[in-house]
Nucleic acid binder design. Structure first.
Lengths: 219, 219
DNA sequence: CTGGACAAATGAGATGATCTCAGCAACACT
DNA sequence: AGTGTTGCTGAGATCATCTCATTTGTCCAG
């Protein structure tokens, strides 16, 4: 009669179950408010079992986010390769980022507000993926310079920061569940400003702050 | 004989002591790693006394950050008023933001990584100050449009997001104690890209490389 | 000077979280 | 059946935040 007090599963299966449960609970409550007890319950194990496979609660967060991040960018390089033209490629990069955020706001929020703050972030695979991602951006920009489409004196890191920072701020309300945005429209707007901002060609419309060139309408 | 087991201070003084201690401890360890017990000890009180004046640990964080934020932007409007010219004003806004971050990285980090994530953020005075700050930015941009210096079709919120997002990403490593930056140089670089990106005058340097539609916002 | 009201401050302990660990129970292989 | 291996348990150690009945200084009325 005694049906087993517990079921015995192969290691991988158990880990997968726990991670699946963790993903759901983190998604619903965020990292801090999620309790390991609840994750364990939903995974059908006892609390101690979670710690058998994951050193801390935080290790569980990292594992969950890393798996998801892996899936996410698997087809990315492939697609980028097909797209030609500096501005089209940039547009794809920006759109891809925006569209990821649109599809998985809660997981993105975990990365932005929890994972990225921690001291161990740089040892994380997520960090590595992000690096590769922003590295691609710099590559595209350098390519643009080589083609003579982007000014040689543009500080590329600043341009990159304006792209990704802009995307993040633009989607901020949405990620917190307080607004909406359109990935396509936002990508268009951002790349448009950026293109005009860094492309070669015509001279700058107006001189910078210094006193050198006279301003048109001083007051 | 017995000097009093504890000292009795006026309410305001005690609160000030506790907040000062909290500021130091938060600054050193961050919010999560700071314990109320340690804050209490440094303030020369017992743990329970902290809860006499602050409902939660989080209320203490908010109080500390709010006081600091208040001091910070007190002279801001005044200065901005004196500066003339759209681009100079933008440059001042951006520089001010950058320079604040440079001077108080740990407190900025508290805002970025702890306070801003919480659900009560929008009820905070910090939120209100930030709103006013970004509102000024939009004002300056609209002024630029009125003067004919900025294109009418520029989506101003996107421009604003690129500014503040760009600043935040640019200073990210520094805030985490892993790098440096120059407020003046960064402000120059950001405003330069932005100015070329949104100023009127010359037509856009080059059409997007793709086959079809130029991206222009019809709105 | 004295007694009583009041508020400041205490410290013990309730609550709830993460994390540990000795041992039990199911399975695989003799 | 016996035996080794290991998934899994459940009780509890430890350490946070937060509560509250009680103690103690201070002040003022009489």
């Amino acid at each position: 009669m005694t049906q087993p007090a517990y079921s015995r599963l192969p290691r991988e299966r158990r880990i997968a179950d726990i991670m699946a449960a963790a993903r759901v609970v983190f998604d619903e409550k965020g990292y801090a408010a999620a309790s390991v007890a609840e994750i364990a319950e939903r995974a059908g194990v006892v609390e101690g079992s979670v710690y058998r496979y994951f050193e801390h609660k935080r290790a569980l967060l990292i594992a969950v986010v890393e798996r998801w991040y892996g899936e996410l960018l698997s087809d990315f390089d492939e697609h980028l390769e097909v797209i030609t033209g500096t501005w089209n490629r940039l547009r794809y990069l920006v759109w891809k980022h925006l569209s990821t955020i649109e599809k998985q706001p809660m997981l993105v929020r975990l990365v932005f507000e929890e994972l990225r703050s921690g001291p161990e972030y740089r040892t994380t695979a997520v960090f590595e993926v992000n690096r590769r991602y922003t590295r691609r951006t710099i590559d595209v920009l350098e390519e643009g310079i080589a083609r003579g489409e982007i000014r040689r004196d543009v500080p590329l890191r600043v341009a990159r920061d304006m792209i990704f920072g802009g995307v993040e701020h633009h989607t901020w309300a949405f990620v917190r569940g307080e607004g909406t945005f359109s990935p396509v429209a936002a990508a268009d707007a951002i790349v448009d400003i950026l293109r005009r901002g860094i492309a070669t060609g015509i001279a700058a419309p107006e001189a910078p702050h210094g006193s050198k060139s006279p301003r048109r309408k001083p007051r």
